[in-house]
C-alpha cells in the first residue's frame, strides 16, 4: 500500500466516520433520555436521502404520503385516548399538533416539489419532513409503553424497524438513489488529494455536534433532556414530563438522522433498506461510548469508519464481519466495567 492509497482510505474512513459519529450521537441521546435502543434510526437516514433524491426530480409523493398516513394514525390514537380517559379538554390541541402540523408539512411538500426549488431549499424541506416523522413514530410506537423495560422497548424498536422497511418500500419504491455532490472542488496538500465533498461532510458534522453540545449545555430545554437522562424520577418531580422529553428527543434524533441521510446521499447509492447497516455501525460507535458518553462515541465512530475503510481494502468480503465482530469485545468490556442495576421485572 502506498501513501496515496493510504490517504484515500483514511479520507474515506474519516468521512464515513463523521456520519457514523452523528448517528452515534443521535443513538446515545435517544437511549439516554428514553431508554429506547433506536434500531430504526437507519430507516430515517434512508428516508432523508430518498426524499432529497425525489425532490431533485420534482417529486415528494413518498414522504408526503408517509407523513399523511402517520398523521392519521397518530390522530386516531389521540382520539382513542381521549375517549378512554373521558378527557377531551386537550383533544383539539393534540390533534392540531399530531395531525395538523404533519399534514401541513405534507401539503407544502406536495405544492412546492413540482416547482423544483433551489438545492438548499430542497435540503431544508427534506430535513423538515423527515424530522417531523421522529415525534410521530415516538407517539405511535413508544409513548404508550414508555415505562416498559429496555428489552421490551428494544423488541418494539426491532418491530418498528420491520414496519419502516415495508413503509420505505411502499412509499419510495425499490430503486436506489444517489444525490448530486454538494461540491466538485478538490484540494491538494503535499501530493494528497482531498475532496471538497469530504471536507464538507466532516465540517457539517462537526458544526452539528457543536450546535447540539450548545443546546444541551446552554438552554433550559437541553438541560431538561439531560436531567431526564440522568434521573427520570427526579425529572418528573421537577415537572419535566417524560412524554415531552421523549417527543423532543425523537425530534432531535430524526433531525440528526435526516442530516446523515443528506450527507451520505452523494457518497453511496441508498435503497429503502440501506439504513440498517449504516445505523448498526453507528451503534457500534455508540456502544463503544457505553450508550452514554458522546465524546467516546464520536471517537468510536471514527475508529469504525477507518476500520471499515481499511478492511474493505484488505478483505473486502469480510468487511462487515470484521466491523461487527469488533463490537463483541467492546460490549464485553462495557458490561464488565459499567455498574449495572439489574432490571427488576
Amino acid at each position: 500500500m502506498d501513501l496515496q492509497i493510504f490517504a484515500l482510505l483514511a479520507q474515506d474512513g474519516i468521512t464515513n466516520g463523521a456520519v457514523y459519529a452523528l448517528l452515534a450521537l443521535a443513538l446515545v441521546l435517544v437511549f439516554a433520555v428514553t431508554r429506547v435502543i433506536w434500531v430504526p434510526s437507519g430507516e430515517f437516514l434512508a428516508y432523508g436521502t430518498l426524499t432529497l433524491a425525489g425532490l431533485q426530480l420534482g417529486k415528494a409523493s413518498g414522504i408526503a404520503g408517509m407523513l399523511a398516513v402517520m398523521a392519521v394514525v397518530a390522530a386516531l390514537m389521540e382520539v382513542a385516548k381521549a375517549i378512554r380517559q373521558r378527557e377531551t379538554r386537550h383533544l383539539a390541541r393534540s390533534l392540531a399538533w399530531w395531525a395538523g402540523a404533519p399534514l401541513a408539512i405534507a401539503g407544502t411538500l406536495h405544492l412546492v416539489a413540482p416547482m423544483q426549488p433551489p438545492f438548499v431549499v430542497q435540503i431544508l424541506l427534506t430535513l423538515t419532513a423527515v424530522t417531523a416523522l421522529g415525534p410521530l413514530f415516538y407517539r405511535i410506537a413508544y409513548q404508550p409503553i414508555a415505562e416498559a423495560s429496555v428489552l421490551v422497548l428494544l423488541i418494539v424498536s426491532v418491530a418498528l424497524h420491520f414496519a419502516l422497511l415495508g413503509l420505505g418500500l411502499w412509499f419510495f419504491g425499490a430503486e436506489g438513489s444517489r444525490t448530486p455532490p454538494f461540491t466538485s472542488a478538490s484540494y491538494e496538500w503535499g501530493g494528497i488529494r482531498v475532496s471538497g465533498q469530504s471536507l464538507l461532510v466532516v465540517a457539517t458534522s462537526l458544526a452539528l455536534i457543536v450546535a447540539l453540545a450548545l443546546f444541551f449545555n446552554r438552554t433550559l430545554y437541553g438541560r431538561a433532556l439531560r436531567a431526564t437522562a440522568v434521573n427520570r424520577v427526579g425529572a418528573r418531580l421537577a415537572g419535566i414530563s417524560p412524554t415531552f422529553a421523549g417527543t423532543l428527543t425523537f425530534t432531535l434524533g430524526a433531525l440528526v438522522c435526516a442530516f446523515c441521510g443528506v450527507l451520505i446521499g452523494p457518497i453511496t447509492t441508498v435503497y429503502y433498506d440501506s439504513g440498517f447497516l449504516v445505523s448498526l455501525k453507528g451503534f457500534v460507535a455508540a456502544i463503544i461510548g457505553g450508550l452514554a458518553s458522546y465524546p467516546i462515541a464520536a471517537a468510536g465512530a471514527l475508529l469504525v469508519g477507518l476500520l471499515e475503510a481499511f478492511s474493505s481494502y484488505w478483505a473486502s468480503a469480510f468487511k462487515e464481519v470484521i466491523v461487527f465482530t469488533l463490537i463483541i469485545p467492546v460490549l464485553l468490556w462495557r458490561s464488565l466495567t459499567t455498574h449495572h442495576h439489574e432490571d427488576e421485572e
Partner: peptide, 21 residues
C-alpha cells in the same frame, strides 16, 4: 462464555452483532 457475562441490553445487542457476523 463471552456474551452471557453482559448484562441488561448489552446481551441482545451482542447477539445482533454475532448474528450478523
Amino acid at each position: 462464555f463471552i456474551t452471557l457475562r453482559m448484562k441488561g441490553h448489552y446481551l441482545p445487542l451482542a447477539t445482533i452483532a454475532w448474528g450478523i457476523s
